[in-house]
Design a protein around this nucleic acid. Structure first.
Length: 491
RNA sequence: GACCCGUUCGUCUAAGGGUUAGGACACCGCCCUUUCACGGCGGUAAUACGGGUUCGAAUCCCGUACGGGUCGCCA
């Protein structure tokens, strides 16, 4: 089902114009009057990005939480594009956001590319719906014109948000909105508390379309960043004016950068497409994002997406902001890397191997990947570990060579190694170890002392994959050739 | 500036009236590994501060400090 939706997305989402255009005639009370009353209601959550930039980790985490909540409760996850600001919305940005969600595996049941009964799913195509709702407010006397813009009269009373994460928060919009802070003069100035919902140019404003769409799309739970908590009373005022029960709100804490300020695109780990490029697994990114602001209340930290679906719920969400920790994110990735099936590992690593000039179809590739998965945290770190196996010529690391020279008569050691390995007749891990051991005994040394020189001579570096399995993969002829080449070089 | 939210090891978090305040990342040490890693074991490290309430407070209440957010004809 999910895969189907995604493949349709891949081929169709470029034509956002093709949408279901059925307008709902009785859009309000019928489907939501029971909201919050009966647990049997069908959960409907949405992710509503504005296509004005990249898919940011904060947005992706919001999408994840909404997706997880819907999936956990057997509900519906909707993708709605909030592109009312025509000047800032771009198709490139839309593309990046959809690609990012798709890469993460957060499939949507309704939205761009998959349609649904509550479309269109682009706000830029929903003007007739907004006009209708505007007319309702106008008829009930909630609106007035101000300099070509249309304002919604806010009520002069306390409005209480019952938030699933933050608890009850009360505000009087009239009181709050009649002053505003002027950033330039750093003073409070008189202000009009009534909110603009339509611009003089005819464009509708976020607060209005957001509420109308949540009503129209029968959204039951709004999970969003805590930066929206202060906006919520405005939204509740609109719901009340429409005579509609609002959804359940859950404002989740923000993710900050390591210095404790708002994440910007320049911060490490801020942009989802970079995770893909840097060799993270989508499951690991989801896992880490889930952990920023939510916990399973036990000691488990590594979760597959399926486990997350089973475990995630609103009570596990905490209410304080978190700071992003790239090291921990890498560690989570390494844990997922260890548990990947051999086939998946090959599939995921392929682009990185190719980029490093390693032929992923090489028969030795699967075995080489097994040698690399324990010592790489990111897919992008894999090639460096195993590149020497596939290299025509060995690249020698100066520091490693110096290290190999330190304790021994290196020429003597390499010669002994070359002779011993040439004589080896059992080309297996055990057979090779026996040969190395014999070579060591022959020159009065211990086997351990030959391992580093052998490693440097054959692999070019004192670090990398496990030596003996590498020798097996390389083949006897190649190993002897490399030993002799190294002997000549240092001779 | 006003209003709102928050504050447990450096970081992510658990404990939500009674625990030697637990786990994880990072860091350090030891062990394992005749190489490189993984791994195992251990260590350093926290209840922001001040008042209450209580036999007992990280936990409930008040204040302060600090951090974040909002105050758009952006979303």
């Amino acid at each position: 089902m999910a895969l189907h939706a995604q493949s349709r997305l891949a081929t169709h989402y470029q034509e956002p114009g093709t949408k279901h255009h059925e307008l709902r005639t009785s859009p309000t009370l019928d489907h939501r009057s029971h909201c919050g009353t009966f647990p049997a209601m069908t959960v409907r959550t949405r992710f509503a990005p504005s296509p004005t930039g990249f898919l940011h980790i904060g947005g992706a985490r919001t999408a994840l939480y909404n997706w997880l909540y819907a999936r956990h409760h057997g509900g519906t996850f909707i993708l709605r594009v909030e592109d009312t600001d025509a000047d800032r919305s771009t198709t490139e940005s839309m593309q990046i956001i959809l690609d990012g969600l798709k890469w993460l595996g957060l499939d949507w049941d309704e939205g761009p590319g998959v349609g649904g009964d509550y479309g269109p799913y682009f706000q830029s195509e929903r003007n007739e719906i907004y006009d209708r709702y505007l007319a309702k407010l106008e008829a009930s006397g909630h609106l007035y014109e101000d300099d070509g813009a249309i304002r919604f009269r806010v009520p002069d009373k306390m409005i209480t948000v019952s938030d699933a994460v933050c608890g009850e928060v009360s505000t009087n919009l009239k009181e709050q909105g009649s002053r505003r802070y002027d950033a330039e003069t750093k003073k409070e100035v008189e202000a009009n508390p009534d909110i603009v919902i339509k611009r003089p140019n005819g464009g509708y404003i976020f607060h209005f379309v957001n509420v109308v769409d949540d009503i129209e799309m029968a959204i039951t739970h709004v999970i969003r960043g805590e930066d929206h908590l202060s906006n919520t009373p405005k939204h509740l005022a609109l719901f009340e004016a429409f005579g509609t029960t609002p959804p359940v709100y859950a404002h989740i804490p923000l993710n900050l950068n390591p210095s404790g300020t708002k994440m910007s695109k320049r911060d490490q780990g801020a942009l989802i497409h970079e995770y893909q490029e840097n060799g993270f697994l989508p499951a690991a990114v989801n896992n880490y994002m889930a952990l920023l602001g939510w916990s399973a209340k036990d000691d488990q930290e590594i979760f597959s997406l399926e486990e997350l679906k089973a475990r995630f719920d609103l009570p596990g969400v905490n209410s304080s902001n978190s700071k992003f920790d790239y090291d921990k994110c890498r560690w989570v990735n390494s844990e997922h890397l260890k548990h990947l099936s051999a086939a998946d590992l090959l599939t995921r690593a392929r682009p990185f191997l190719t980029r490093a000039g390693i032929e992923a179809s090489d028969v030795r590739a699967p075995a080489a990947l097994e040698l690399a998965r324990d010592r790489a945290q990111l897919l992008s770190e894999i090639p460096a570990v195993i590149a020497t196996i596939f290299a025509e010529t060995v690249t020698y690391d100066e520091v490693s060579v110096t290290k190999a020279r330190e304790k021994n008569d290196l020429s003597q050691v390499i010669t002994a190694l070359a002779d011993g390995i040439t004589a080896a007749d059992d080309w297996t891990v055990d057979g090779i170890k026996a040969a190395i051991n014999e070579a060591a005994t022959g020159i009065g040394m211990k086997m351990g002392a030959l391992m580093l020189p052998c490693r440097v001579a054959v692999m070019g570096s004192s670090t990398g994959a496990d030596l003996v399995p590498v020798l097996v993969l390389l083949g006897k002829d190649e190993v002897v050739k490399r030993l002799n080449g190294f002997a000549a070089m240092i001779g």
